[in-house]
Amino acid sequence: MRYNAIFAALIAATLLAGCNQSSNKESADGGGKKLVIGATMLSMQNEFIVNVSDAMEAKAKEMGVELITVDAERSALKQVEQVESFIGQGVDAIIMNPCEVEASSPAIKLAMDAKIPIINVNSETSAKPTAFVGSDDTESARIAMRYIAEKLGGKGNVLMMHGFMGQAAQIRRDNGAKEILKANPGLKLLAEQTGEWDRAKGMSLTENWIQSYGDKINAIFAQNDEMGMGAVKALEAAGLKGKVLVVSVDAIPDALQAVKKGTLDATVFQNAKEQGGKAIETAVKAAKKEAFEKDVLIPFQLVTKENVGNFLK
């Protein structure tokens, strides 16, 4: 009886091991193989980019995809090297949040030559990727500058704070803002300079402008919220808040709270969650050779004190 019991236990263990091997094999080969996506992001010091990255992570988890995210630290050269590394690792798809329009472009060719789909998220390159997921940055600046023109009654002195020079968002937001300035000859562009998407640099730049132009300043258009929040801080310290209109882009949580309080006049909502989620969805479809949209454009929305409640979590 003892030997019979041992024999039965051995048979059960063998059957169980066979079942486990079979289920493991099915998850690996039977359509259950985990796709691996490599993502290189402009800068994980930028709150909006972090929001896009978080949305990508959440969507990848939901879809059962492995996501490897690296920080390019604003270096296009580093970004190209990161894409080379992903190709060497044999990832199924690459998502790139480009540092620069031109300097990040070689990464597109590298991925294409390796026959790995590459999706640009949030920003563009001159080289055409497999797909683009983002928003029309020209329109965001048109929305912001139209709001400034309306609030100033079409007359006044405006300062413009640029993002990282040579990046698609900076180029397009510059174009959109200047299009509206041209249509409103009563608005004068007093000065323009880069704050490199950075809050501390935005604050320092505004302090310099206050010294140079003082009460001649009627409005500041910051190409992102980080710089806009820096401008607000400098204006508050100089006792000029309420006298100078400040409008920026992205609608990060800090900016939404500032709009609610009235310290930031307006921001333009850019949907980080949609951009991140759609980038993963598009990458997965491209990797599986399924049909996908080559251009996924997510609209911008103006956020003021009147409608900020709709955007606050």
Rank of each mutant, 00 (worst) to 15 (best):
T69G: 02
T69V: 07
T69I: 07
V70M: 07
D71F: 02
A72W: 05
E73R: 04
E73A: 06
S75P: 02
L77E: 03
L77Y: 01
K78M: 00
Q79I: 08
Q82K: 09
V83K: 08
V83M: 08
S85M: 06
S85W: 07
I87K: 05
G88R: 04
Q89D: 14
V91W: 04
D92R: 03
D92M: 05
I94F: 06
I94Y: 08
N97V: 11
N97I: 10
N97D: 15
C99N: 14
E100L: 15
E100P: 12
V101E: 13
A103K: 06
A103P: 02
S104F: 10
P106Y: 09
A107M: 11
A107N: 09
A107H: 10
A107T: 11
I108E: 11
I108W: 09
K109I: 10
L110M: 09
L110H: 05
L110T: 05
M112R: 12
A114G: 02
I116M: 04
I116Q: 04
P117H: 02
I119W: 00
I119D: 05
N120M: 13
S123F: 14
E124C: 14
T125P: 11
T125E: 14
P129W: 12
T130N: 00
T130Q: 01
A131M: 00
A131K: 02
F132V: 14
F132P: 01
V133W: 00
G134I: 10
G134W: 06
S135Q: 10
D136S: 13
E139R: 14
E139P: 12
A141V: 12
R142G: 13
I143A: 01
I143Y: 04
A144M: 11
A144C: 12
M145A: 13
M145K: 09
M145C: 13
Y147G: 02
Y147D: 04
Y147N: 03
K155F: 03
G156K: 00
N157S: 00
N157G: 03
V158S: 03
L159G: 04
L159A: 01
M161S: 07
M161C: 06
H162I: 06
G163Q: 04
F164A: 15
M165D: 14
M165L: 15
G166P: 09
G166C: 05
Q167W: 12
Q167T: 15
A169C: 14
A169R: 06
A169E: 15
A169V: 13
I171W: 15
I171N: 15
D174M: 12
D174V: 13
D174F: 14
G176Q: 08
G176N: 09
A177L: 03
A177S: 07
E179Q: 14
E179G: 12
E179D: 15
K182R: 07
N184A: 01
N184Y: 00
N184D: 00
P185N: 05
L187K: 01
Q193E: 10
E196D: 15
D198G: 03
D198M: 07
R199C: 06
R199F: 02
A200Q: 09
M203D: 03
S204Y: 11
N208F: 04
I210M: 04
